[in-house]
Amino acid sequence: MLGTLVNPRNLVRSFKRILKSAGLPKLRFHDLRHTHATLMLRQGEHPKIVSERLGHSNIRITMDTYSHVLPNMQQEAVERFEKMFLEDEEK
């Protein structure tokens, strides 16, 4: 029925059925949340935005949980800063 609450058990059962019919491996419904956050961070989305989307009370929770997927974060920051600095120097 439209407008009624979704029973979590039914949602999980439907999710498992869809995975099976699509020939995909078993995963938890919650894994979709982790995948979403990981993909956003990898595409360069600001961690604060990801944190807000996940409903974390602060950005530290997000970074503690997901920073391992961004091992090159420091190096990339240095490269962006260097590029900006060199572009300003050329002007």
Rank of each mutant, 00 (worst) to 15 (best):
H68G: 09
A37Y: 00
R9E: 03
M73R: 03
P71N: 03
R60G: 03
L54T: 04
D88T: 04
E52T: 12
S14I: 09
T35S: 06
E52D: 15
L2M: 06
R42E: 09
M73A: 02
E89D: 08
M84R: 10
D88W: 15
N72L: 05
R80E: 11
R80F: 11
N58T: 05
H68F: 13
F29D: 01
S14V: 11
T65E: 04
D88Q: 13
K83M: 10
M40T: 00
V12L: 10
H68P: 03
V50P: 00
R60S: 09
S14A: 11
Q75L: 13
L2S: 10
T35N: 14
H30F: 05
I59A: 04
R13Q: 05
I49M: 14
M73Y: 06
P8Q: 03
G55W: 15
L11F: 00
G55F: 14
T62K: 04
L27E: 05
Y66P: 02
R33W: 15
V6A: 12
G23F: 10
F15I: 01
M40Q: 06
V69I: 15
K91G: 00
L32K: 10
L70M: 15
N58A: 14
F85E: 04
M63C: 05
K20R: 14
A77C: 01
I61H: 09
D88F: 12
H46P: 02
F85R: 11
M1C: 15
S14K: 15
R28P: 02
R42F: 01
R28S: 06
L19D: 00
I61P: 08
H68N: 07
I59D: 07
E82K: 01
I49G: 08
T65A: 08
Q74N: 01
I61T: 09
M84Y: 15
T35L: 15
H68V: 09
A77H: 00
